[in-house]
Amino acid sequence: MLSNSEYVRQSLELNMFFMRIAKEHSIFLEAGFTTKNPQLINRAEQLKNVFSQLLVENIRLSNGIISPEVAKSGEFVTDLTLEAERETQYYAGIAIDPNITRMETMVLGTENGRITPSLVRMVNDLNNRAIYAAEQLAAFKKGLLQDVLACKVFTTNYPLLLDHILREAIFYLRLLRKLQNREEADLTREAAYQETFWNRIMAEHSKFIRGLLDPTEVKLFNTANDFGEKFDKLTAEAKELSSNLNLLPAVTSRSLNNTEDLRDFKRQGTEGLIQCKIKSIAYPLLGDHVVREANHYIRILNDFKKIQARS
């Protein structure tokens, strides 16, 4: 059973990452609708605002509580986030509060934050509200995906992207519910599970990048395509871990090396979008978004390597 200290720290770190991801998913959904569907635009806007408010609450509870390693990982915000938000707001006409990003940049991590009974209660309440909000967002994504596949709704977001972000919402819910039950994970099996999940996510990121590039961006297209193929193979390797966990250290190392390379490619692409040097139909915030997801996965993989070294 997780101690109060681990429960609070893990909850705040998980929420700091995924609440922003969920907020941005809502932005991308809203930006993808046409004027035919004002009700869908309004629902996505509502969900964006819900996760914005939850994220602000989480930020206020996190200062001096989360670990320094996580605070510095680049999974919450990067040095490109504010500019990517500004440009995306300009292009899409969707309000994005820059003060939330500024607040996140000020959060400090410590090794031994003071955990009080009051903080435990506040985190528990926040987690319950996050579960409800994530359930609402997942239901919205699921319904939208069904309608798109049935040709009832048009969106500029790929059906695969809708399925992709639905899986991320379900993944977030899984981790939140485990925390609320104070479950301690079997770290080896959790590593195998998460590497299967995140390698697939990285493969799909590569394919989305490929599909959002202008057809004239041949070199970038080919690089993105190569990453997609590499991570398809890594996903297949990670799936094999369920029957042979002895392969985990090798798969973890290959996943880490390739994710670092992909993260650098994504960052270069995000800079290119911000500087108007890449021809694409991707919002700059989407570029920064996938950079942060790669940073999150890199941090997790490094944690898995440390655990494996001690085993």
Rank of each mutant, 00 (worst) to 15 (best):
residue 8 V to D: 01
residue 9 R to D: 02
residue 13 E to G: 03
residue 20 R to A: 04
residue 20 R to C: 00
residue 25 H to S: 07
residue 27 I to W: 05
residue 27 I to T: 13
residue 37 N to W: 13
residue 41 I to Y: 12
residue 42 N to P: 00
residue 48 K to W: 05
residue 49 N to Y: 05
residue 50 V to L: 12
residue 60 R to T: 04
residue 73 S to G: 05
residue 77 V to A: 12
residue 84 A to P: 04
residue 87 E to C: 01
residue 91 Y to S: 10
residue 92 A to P: 01
residue 92 A to R: 09
residue 100 I to D: 06
residue 104 E to K: 14
residue 104 E to R: 14
residue 109 G to C: 12
residue 109 G to Y: 08
residue 115 I to E: 06
residue 115 I to C: 06
residue 117 P to C: 08
residue 118 S to W: 01
residue 129 R to G: 03
residue 132 Y to R: 15
residue 133 A to C: 06
residue 134 A to D: 02
residue 156 T to R: 13
residue 157 N to W: 00
residue 161 L to I: 06
residue 170 I to L: 15
residue 180 Q to Y: 06
residue 180 Q to A: 07
residue 186 D to S: 10
residue 186 D to Y: 08
residue 190 E to G: 02
residue 192 A to Q: 04
residue 193 Y to G: 00
residue 210 R to C: 08
residue 231 F to E: 07
residue 232 D to A: 15
residue 233 K to C: 05
residue 237 E to R: 13
residue 238 A to H: 06
residue 239 K to R: 15
residue 241 L to V: 06
residue 245 L to F: 11
residue 247 L to T: 08
residue 254 R to C: 00
residue 264 D to W: 01
residue 266 K to F: 08
residue 278 I to H: 05
residue 280 S to E: 03
residue 283 Y to H: 13
residue 288 D to Y: 08
residue 288 D to L: 07
residue 289 H to E: 03
residue 290 V to P: 00
residue 292 R to N: 06
residue 297 Y to N: 11
residue 298 I to P: 00
residue 298 I to W: 01
residue 299 R to E: 03
residue 310 R to N: 11
